[in-house]
Write a protein that binds this DNA or RNA. Structure first.
Lengths: 198, 198
DNA sequence: TTCTTAACCGAACAGTCGGTCAGCCAGCAA
DNA sequence: TTGCTGGCTGACCGACTGTTCGGTTAAGAA
C-alpha cells in the first residue's frame, strides 16, 4: 500500500526529513539559539551539506511556518467554517485548529514563537494576524446573534480563546495519555461552558 | 512628593534603568536574537559600559526572570490563596496572577519564552514548574470539593487555564482601552462561566 | 581643591556565526 | 561500463559574538 517512492542518487536526507529534524531542534533551542553547525551535528552530516538541500537558514524557517499557516488557513476554507450559525462555525474552527496544532505540532510551535526580526518572520506574523482577524470576526458575529455573552468584547474573547488553544504547543505531546479528540473536547467545554460544575 | 534619591557619581544608567531597556529589547528581538552590541546602541553607551552594571548577558536574564517569578510566588503566599474553599482560592490566584502579569509584563514575557539552553534558563523553568504544580493542586482540590466539573482532568484544566492567562503577554498593553480589572474579570468569566450566553 | 564614587570609552580578545566553493561518492538506468 | 543524479566533504571567508582591560570623565562630599 505504501507508495515507496524510489529515490535515485546517493541515499541520505531529502528536504522533508532534514526539515523535520531541523524544526525539532529549533523548538528545543530556539531558532536564534540554534547554529547550523549544531544542526549539522544532529543530522550527522557537515554544515555545508545542509546547503545542498536548502539555500539558507531563513528558508528552513519559512518552509516550517508555511506548513503551519497553510494548515490553519485550510481550516477556515472548510464548509463547516463558512455555513451555519456563527457560534457553530466558531466551534468548528476551534476544534479543527486544535487538530492542526496537534498534527503539525512542531511547525505550529515554531510559528507561534516567531518575533519579527526578518522579512520571513514578518511575513509569517502578517499571515497569522490575518487568521486571527477571521476568528475575531466570527466571535463578533456570534455575539451579534446573541449566542455569546456580550460582557466581554470580541477581540478580548478571541485573543483569550486562541491564547488557550495555542498554549497546547507548550505541553501537549501526542504520545501522552490524552487523545486529540479529548483535548479538543476539553478546549471546547472550557471555552463555551466554563470550568464551574454544572 | 517624589522622593528624588540623590545618586552620587557620574549620572547615567543604574542597574534598574538599564535592565528595563534590556528586557524590552530582549522581548522585541528575542534573548538570543539580541546582541550586546545592539543593546549598547539602544542604550546610547558602549558595549563595555554594560559590563560595569552587570557581569554577563545571562545575568541580565536571571535578574529579569527572577522579578517575574518572585511576583508569582508572592501571590501563592497571600492569605486568600491559602484559606477558604479551593475554588475561591483558585479564583484569587488567577486574578492576582493576571495582575502580576500586567504589572511586570516585560519580565513575565521574558520568563515565558525561556527555553532551557543554559543553567539560568533551566533554573527559571524549574521554578515555573513549581508554580504550575501549586495551581494544579488547587484545581484538583476544587474538583474534589465538587466545585469544578469533573469531565476534564485537573492537569489539563490548569494548563489550559494558565495557557489562557499567560497568552495575555502576547497582546495586552497597559495603555490600551481595557483596564487591568476588566481583563481579570474577562479571564475569570471565560474560565469559570464560559463564553456561551447565559 | 582634592577625594571618592559611579558611569563610561576604545581597542582588543578568542571563538562562533551563516554561508561559499570545488570537487568527491554512492546508487540507479541504459 | 558509463552517464546521470542527488547527497556529501573539507577547507575556507568575513562578519559578528560575548567578554576583558586599562584608562577617563562627571558629579557630590570633604
Amino acid at each position: 500500500m505504501v507508495e515507496q517512492s524510489i529515490r535515485r542518487g546517493r541515499p541520505g536526507y531529502d528536504l522533508e526529513s532534514l526539515l523535520a529534524i531541523a524544526v525539532k531542534l529549533f523548538n528545543e533551542r530556539g531558532y536564534d539559539g540554534t547554529s547550523m553547525e549544531e544542526l549539522s551535528r544532529k543530522l550527522g552530516i557537515t554544515k555545508s551539506a545542509i546547503y545542498h538541500h536548502v539555500p539558507s537558514k531563513q528558508e528552513l524557517l519559512r518552509l516550517a511556518v508555511d506548513r503551519a499557516l497553510d494548515g490553519l488557513f485550510a481550516v477556515t476554507l472548510e464548509a463547516r467554517s463558512q455555513e451555519g450559525r456563527a457560534i457553530d462555525r466558531l466551534e468548528h474552527v476551534v476544534r479543527r485548529s486544535v487538530a492542526v496544532l496537534v498534527e503539525r505540532l512542531p511547525f505550529v510551535t515554531l510559528l507561534l514563537r516567531v518575533r519579527g526580526n526578518t522579512k520571513v518572520e514578518r511575513a509569517a506574523l502578517a499571515r497569522r494576524r490575518e487568521f486571527d482577524q477571521l476568528v475575531t470576526d466570527l466571535v463578533q458575529q456570534a455575539a451579534d446573534d446573541g449566542d455569546l455573552r456580550s460582557d466581554i468584547d470580541p477581540s478580548t474573547t478571541s485573543r483569550l480563546l486562541f491564547g488557550m488553544i495555542n498554549s497546547v504547543i507548550e505541553w501537549y505531546r501526542p504520545r501522552g495519555d490524552i487523545t486529540q479528540d479529548a483535548l479538543a473536547d476539553a478546549v471546547c467545554t472550557l471555552a463555551f461552558a466554563g470550568l464551574r460544575a454544572p
